[in-house]
Every structure is written in C-alpha cells, then in structure tokens.
Amino acid sequence: MSIKLRVLLIIFSLVFFAVVARLVRHGRLQLKYSLLWLAIGLAFLLSAIFPGSVTFLKGLLGIELASNFVFFAALAGLFAVSLSLTVIVSWQSRDIRMLIQQIALLQKKLEQEQGEEQEQGARRTPPPSHNDTNPTSNN
C-alpha cells in the first residue's frame, strides 16, 4: 500500500468517525446502529496504519491481490449492513401494522361508547332546557 493511499485512508476514516459521531449527537442516528459503522471505520483505520494486516489476512483466505481482499471484505461488510437494515425495516413494519390496528380498535371502541352514551342520554336525561332544575344531571 502506497504511503499516499494510507494517508488518504486515515483521513477518510477520521472524517467518517466524525460524521457518525455528529449524527449520533444530533439524534439522527441511534447509538446502537452507529456501532456497526464505527467498527467498519475502525477496520479502515487499522488497515491503513498496519498494512501488514491486510497482507496477512489475504494470505489466510488464499486471495492473491490485496485489492481483491479489500473488495471482498467491503462487500461482506455491506451485505451484513443491508441484511441488518432489512431486519430493522421488518420490525418497524410489524410495529407500524400493530399500531395502525390498535388505532382502528380504539377508534371503534370510542365510537361505540359515544353511541351508547347518546342512547342512554336520550333515554335518561330530560331535554337540555330543564337541566338546571334536574339534580341528577349535575354529575
């Protein structure tokens, strides 16, 4: 790895850390989701500081070119991220569905109770003009 590329990678990962930290602080990214991104940034940083680690790992996997190893690792990382995103989306759509159903049930219950009150009101309480003379209507 050329010294230029290493410097570039270090700068890139530091900027990336800063962006992630900023997003978390402003509440636009939840802390638990930032961990994965920080781990990926850390991997970039470490491979720039210790280029030998990349050479070692590619040998371990039987990959000849360092660049191919980097592509492979990046692809695997992105797979993991997008899989976890679809898992999160699935949770959310399940939760949203449940909330929509709860709203519908509550609305229905409210309508039913209002309907019953009106019925009872029509049967029990006298017309509104006599209300102030009727002691039971004060409750």
């Binding site: 569905r97 929509i100 159903q101 709203i103 519908a104 049930l105 609305q107 229905k108």
Partner: peptide
Amino acid sequence: INLPRNLGIGGAVQ
C-alpha cells in the same frame, strides 16, 4: 371499523 392505512388482506383480517 376503519384502518387509517392500507395494510393488505392479512392486516385487515387480523
């Protein structure tokens, strides 16, 4: 009973 959004047949039956 009104669902405020379209959930599909599964959500409606549920």
